[in-house]
């Protein structure tokens, strides 16, 4: 894994909202095929960090490099760069006026300029991948949360991204719906997708990811393999956090 050049490289990312500094210099890298899980107490800047990566929230300072291109460079065509990064949102953010198929298809026809026919079959393919081919003509409001999130994943995957960003993809779901979304994510990780996942699902972190990054107060406290993390965390804060999380969400579901 280490021999691969990093797909994503963050250098000293800083972001403030007003006088409050949310990110205080975060640096890490992500290699091809790697799955990294970002954990930390809420309000600690995890979501902001994800949005700093695809520049939905441009960082105040620091550099983001994707595949050798600096995204924080003002001259970069950000719309082009974003096509290489799929994003999955906590609240799904499906386009409410479009059915599942058209949600997945929109980026293909309007951004990738794919023909209607090609886009349609590609979109169906992606829906099949998340097990929702039979719901292609359902609208978001007619789908369960878990199904909506899977459409959200299919929508992001349809763009053939090099990197997938997950922003608490299961936090808004009823417990019985979490499994179906995690399953899709596990399949994806196993298929070799490069993933950066903000989550409280410790089971997922423990069994799927290559490295865990613990973020608190806008800084990385600790990072390491899941094994090191769960069995022998270096920092007291990490241990306290893990204890609290496992109390809330159960130790390891998988």
């Amino acid at each position: 894994m280490l021999s691969n050049p990093p797909i994503l490289l963050l250098k000293d990312i800083r972001k403030s909202y007003g006088t409050e500094e949310v990110l205080k210099g975060v640096s890490f890298e992500l290699s091809k095929g790697e799955t990294k899980v970002l954990i930390g107490p809420s309000g600690t800047g995890k979501s902001t960090l994800l949005r700093c990566i695809n520049q939905l929230t441009p960082p105040d300072e620091g550099e983001v490099w994707l595949n050798g291109t600096e995204l924080t460079d003002k001259k970069v065509d950000i719309n082009k760069a974003r096509q290489q990064m799929g994003m999955v949102f906590q609240h799904f953010n499906l386009f409410a006026h479009l059915d599942a198929l058209n949600n997945v298809k929109l980026g293909l026809t309007k951004v990738k300029q794919m023909s209607e026919k090609k886009a349609r079959s590609k979109a169906m393919e992606e829906l099949e991948r998340v097990g929702l081919a039979n719901q292609a003509s359902s609208y978001p409001a007619q789908l369960s949360g878990g199904q909506q999130q899977r459409v959200g994943i299919a929508r992001a995957l349809a763009m053939d991204p090099k990197l997938m960003l997950f922003d608490e993809p299961t936090s808004a779901l009823d417990p019985e719906l979490i499994g179906e979304v995690l399953e899709v994510m596990i399949d994806l990780a196993e298929a070799g997708m490069t993933m950066l996942v903000v989550t409280h699902e410790m089971g997922f972190a423990r069994s799927v990811c290559d490295e865990i990054v613990f973020l608190e107060n806008g800084k990385i406290v600790e990072q390491g393999s899941p094994r090191q993390f769960f069995e022998n965390p270096e920092h007291k804060r990490t241990r306290e956090f893990l204890d609290k999380i496992s109390e809330l969400y159960g130790g390891s579901k998988r």
């Binding site: 760069a81 096509q83 949102f89 499906l94 409410a96």
Partner: peptide, 10 residues
Amino acid sequence: QMMASRSLGM
């Protein structure tokens, strides 16, 4: 909704 569509590169 805007964020989601911008994230696709629109």
